[in-house]
Design a binder for these strands. Structure first.
Length: 854
RNA sequence: GCGAAAGUGGCGGAAUUGGUAGACGCACUGGACUUAGGAUCCAGCGCCGCAAGGCGUGCGAGUUCGAGUCUCGCCUUUCGCACCA
């Protein structure tokens, strides 16, 4: 056996052996339980980043573990290949997005392979290929038929200089990122998917997902935002004649008697699209944090119960997309209304009693938003929240000016993008027939791959060979739609295509074998949008009879981000220059805290910016390739899995990598030393002296813990820590007797089994030394020997008044009286109970005894 | 602003069901080996204290025989907010 661990060699060998055996090619096999291990597919941005390495290593550990446990495992991989960065690359360097994307895929695939992932590459897909996106188009047409897809107008960010729609990401402090021009809101026609039709099911089925983290389910629940309220009508008469009813939605109908004005969104039909409100972005965060602004419309509406005339204001805090796009304002009991009323001097009328019992303060200092009893509300005085809502809703209904209503925060999904690098929307514009769905025979509507965007508009709009077509209805010359689909469409069903990657239809019956995915792994940042869209899309496919599955992901693991230190220098003009961590020398104080740093190149100080997510712009990324080249894939995988539990953020540490490397070297040397003395059969029974009995107990206790940590808890860091402890214990054995060597042999064999999911290459190599000719890729997960775990005596902790005062060793089955007697006999315990009266003795079996005395 | 999480030694983290706080690793200190050490091995390592012991899980209260863990209030950080993926 080689005395030194050389990862380059053994990793190439192991990967070649897996490939030759086609070990990870998955085939449907109804005789075995299946395990579909799915990781979020990467966007081919150029090269792998640490987040990818972490994501795919977690998936690989679970895939390999379940394979050893006897499951029929399928772990696929693909490319989320459409999107904005390819267009940005084209703008920056003139390369066609297609070319850039395919080059990146080729490079990143090589990188993924060097990590030694147990992936079935036969199922690989890229969403920018016509054979994939044709089914986006096909399903879109089916949705149009069902009325799930429809057209209406929506708001976008408009850069007036380049005459282009901008993504929210491209708007920086209200200005276009390349032009610096003030961005305007603009209303344009778009296609929507009616995800709100599925709101009730998307909400209800969260309860059927025990394998999802509670916080993700809660975030989805809040996002869907089912709320029970009342739709209230405020009649009005326009000065020039006409009349109508202004409808609002409120969850606080009990405060209707306190309404002092009505506010509508800037895009509400009652308001003109007011110039002032055109400015600023379209994101909810921006709207919620901007200064409350508004203006009176000059109109008034009639309070449906009191008949009072209330002014109508346009307010920038009212969202057109939610409820009715208009609200009744009750400043006394809503914070936003309160702030607005203060600013514009509108009246504030308290109609709910404050919890303290205070009643009619003229000028409250803040809105009282709690539920309470109605006051100053005429016939409703004294009613609680529910009674008041019921009574008011009934009175409104009698007048035809209201009813109880359920409203959702969730909005329909706008999928139109005014971009080139995406799935063409299969719609044909005909002068005579209008917007006509493209016929199925035309699919796929192929995206030309040789166009190069320049940042102004969509190059498809100038591409005659793409645009020209005939109207399927009247046969006259027509033009194709140039909008493409949101890339969330691509990622909403790729996991279904993996199940039948070569199907002639969108999917085939193999989806019913593999789905749902038994484990889905990806970034927490996708907790809402991607996961919600994927759930919706799956349900639509189910309702079209394409699959039987309702919920695509049985278990969800949301991994944390990978962070690193940030260093920067502020320029004279306020610009910030970032420095990579390896470009600076860090200064620490006596406690090890970072106090400052200097740039190695010029010796001048740089500022320390704390810890943040690895990103290109902050130059704090670490290239995984350099890590793999220097230490090998196993060290990279081990460090990633050991440094933090998967849900936590992970701080990058060069020293931590060294630690992982050292452990693998120690393990190699330990097996080498053992093997050089000759391999022996693993311990197979017979009586053991106390020391070896304890070692064997540790071996099987470790196996039990690691099985639970990987399989149930998914805390790979604690599994590794336990194996490290066991390895240290095995290394301390200084006994060459046949019995001792047999126990160590058993221990080492179990160690390489337990570590195979995490560091498969080195384990494959070590196992071949421990059992010449054997391969771990064919091995099964070992069984815990329950007999080895049994202990005759156990240690108990003794506390006096909750403080640790001693330890006692008692027989495993000692009774309460015996334990108490032993505890009271302990000299240190006696010292602390001396002179006190014992009030109570708490015995926790197997753990501790607490003597309460005073 | 709204929604969701997190906060434990010098650092990453462990403590799984309310029951020994600090496993494992890193950093650091001392020693061994060595021509050499940025290799390897051994030992120590929360804070205060000579010790006995006391204190200690972001801050402040509370429940309990017992709280890192449960409850309430606050502070800080991170993620998401619908056109980044």
């Amino acid at each position: 056996m080689q005395p030194h661990y050389s990862p380059r060699e053994i990793e190439a060998q192991a990967q070649a052996a897996w490939e030759a055996a086609e070990a990870f090619t998955a085939k449907e096999d109804p005789s075995r339980p299946k395990y579909y291990c799915l990781s979020m597919f990467p966007y081919p941005s150029g090269k792998l980043h640490m987040g990818h390495v972490r994501n795919y290593t977690i998936g690989d550990v679970l895939a390999r573990f379940h394979r050893m446990r006897g499951y029929n495992v399928m772990q696929p991989m693909g490319w989320d290949a459409f999107g904005l960065p390819a267009e940005n690359a084209a703008i920056a360097s003139g390369v066609a997005p297609a070319r850039w994307t395919y080059d990146n895929i080729a490079y990143m695939k090589k990188q993924l392979k060097s990590l030694g992932l147990a992936i079935d590459w036969k199922r690989e897909l890229a969403t920018c290929r016509p054979e994939y996106y044709r089914w986006n188009q096909w399903l879109f047409l089916r949705m149009l038929e069902k009325g799930i897809a429809y057209q209406k107008t929506g708001l976008v960010n408009w850069d007036p200089v380049v005459q282009t729609v901008l993504a929210n990401e491209q708007v920086i402090e209200g200005r276009g990122w390349r032009t610096g021009a003030l961005v305007e809101k603009r209303e344009i026609p778009m296609y929507y998917l009616a995800i709100t039709r599925y709101a009730e099911e998307l909400l209800a089925e969260l309860d059927n997902l025990p394998g999802w983290p509670e916080q993700v389910k809660l975030m989805q629940k809040n996002w869907i935002g089912k709320s029970h309220g009342v739709r209230v009508g405020f009649p009005y008469t326009l000065p020039e004649g006409g009349s109508g009813i202004l409808w609002v939605f409120t969850t606080r109908a009990d405060t209707l008697m306190g309404a002092t004005y009505v506010a509508v969104a800037a895009e509400h039909p009652l308001a003109a699209f007011i110039e002032e409100c055109k400015k600023g972005g379209v994101t909810e965060a921006e709207i919620a944090t901007q200064e409350k602004k508004g203006m009176p419309t000059g109109l008034t509406v009639t309070h449906p119960l009191t008949g009072e005339a209330l002014p109508v204001w346009v307010a920038n805090y009212v969202l057109m997309g939610y409820g009715e796009g208009a609200v009744m304002a009750v400043p006394a009991h809503d914070e936003r209304d309160f702030e607005f009323a203060k600013k514009y001097g509108l009246p504030i009328r308290t109609v709910i009693a404050a919890p303290g019992g205070g009643t009619e303060r003229e000028a409250p200092a803040a809105a009282m938003t709690e539920h309470g009893v109605c006051i100053n509300s005429g016939k409703y005085d004294g009613l609680g929240f529910e009674a008041a809502v019921d009574a008011i809703a009934a009175d409104l209904a009698a007048k035809g000016l209201g009813e109880k209503k359920v409203t959702w925060r969730l909005r329909d999904w706008a999928i139109s993008r005014q971009r080139y690098w995406g799935t063409p929307i299969p719609i044909i514009h005909c002068e005579a027939c209008g917007e006509v769905p493209g016929p199925d025979e035309d699919l796929p509507v192929v995206l030309p791959e040789d166009l190069i965007p320049d940042g102004s508009g969509n190059p498809l709009a100038k591409c005659e060979r793409f645009l020209r077509c005939t109207c399927p209805r009247c046969g006259r010359a027509a033009r194709r739609e140039t909008d493409t689909m949101d890339t969330f469409v691509d990622s909403s069903w790729y996991f279904l295509r993996y199940c039948s990657p070569d199907a002639a239809s969108m999917v085939d019956e193999r989806v019913d074998y593999w789905m749902p995915a038994d484990q889905y792994i990806g970034g927490i940042e996708h907790a809402i949008l991607h996961l919600l869209y994927a759930r919706f899309w799956t349900k639509v496919m189910r309702d079209l009879g394409l699959a039987t599955v309702s919920e695509p992901f049985a278990n969800l693991l949301t991994q944390g981000m990978v962070l690193n230190h940030i260093f920067f220098r502020k320029g004279e003009k306020g610009g910030i220059t970032y420095f990579a961590p390896d470009e600076v020398e860090v200064h620490r104080d006596a406690k090890g805290l970072i106090t400052g740093a200097v740039c190695k190149a010029d010796g001048q100080p740089v500022e320390y910016g704390g810890i943040g997510t690895m990103s290109k712009s902050k130059k704090n990324g670490v290239d995984p390739q350099a890590l793999i080249d220097q230490y090998g894939a196993d060290t990279a995988r081990l460090f990633m899995m050991f440094a933090a539990p998967p849900e936590n953020t992970l701080e990058w540490s060069d020293a931590g990598v060294e630690g992982a490397w050292r452990f693998l070297n120690r393990l190699w040397k330990l097996v080498h030393a053992h093997v050089e003395k000759g391999v022996v059969p693993a311990y197979g029974g017979g009586s053991l002296p106390d020391g070896l009995k304890a070692l064997r107990r540790q071996i099987h206790a470790t196996l039990q813990k690691v099985t639970d940590d990987i399989g149930r808890r998914k805390t790979f860091n604690t599994a590794i820590a336990a194996v490290m402890e066991l390895t240290n214990a095995l290394g301390r054995v200084n006994d060459d007797s046949p019995l001792a060597r047999a126990v160590v042999q058993e221990g080492l064999e179990l160690v390489v089994h337990m570590l195979w999911p995490i560091v498969p290459h080195i384990c494959e190599a070590l196992y071949a030394e421990l059992r010449p000719g054997a391969r771990l890729m064919d091995a099964t997960w070992p069984e815990v020997d329950q007999d080895a775990l049994v202990e005759d005596e156990i240690d108990l902790v003794v506390q006096v008044n909750g403080k640790l005062r001693g330890q006692i060793r008692v027989p495993r089955d000692a009774d309460r009286a015996a334990i108490e007697a032993l505890a009271r006999a302990n000299p240190n315990v006696q010292k602390f109970i001396d002179g006190l009266t014992i009030r109570k003795v708490v015995v926790v079996p197997g753990r501790l005894i607490n003597i309460v005395a005073n």
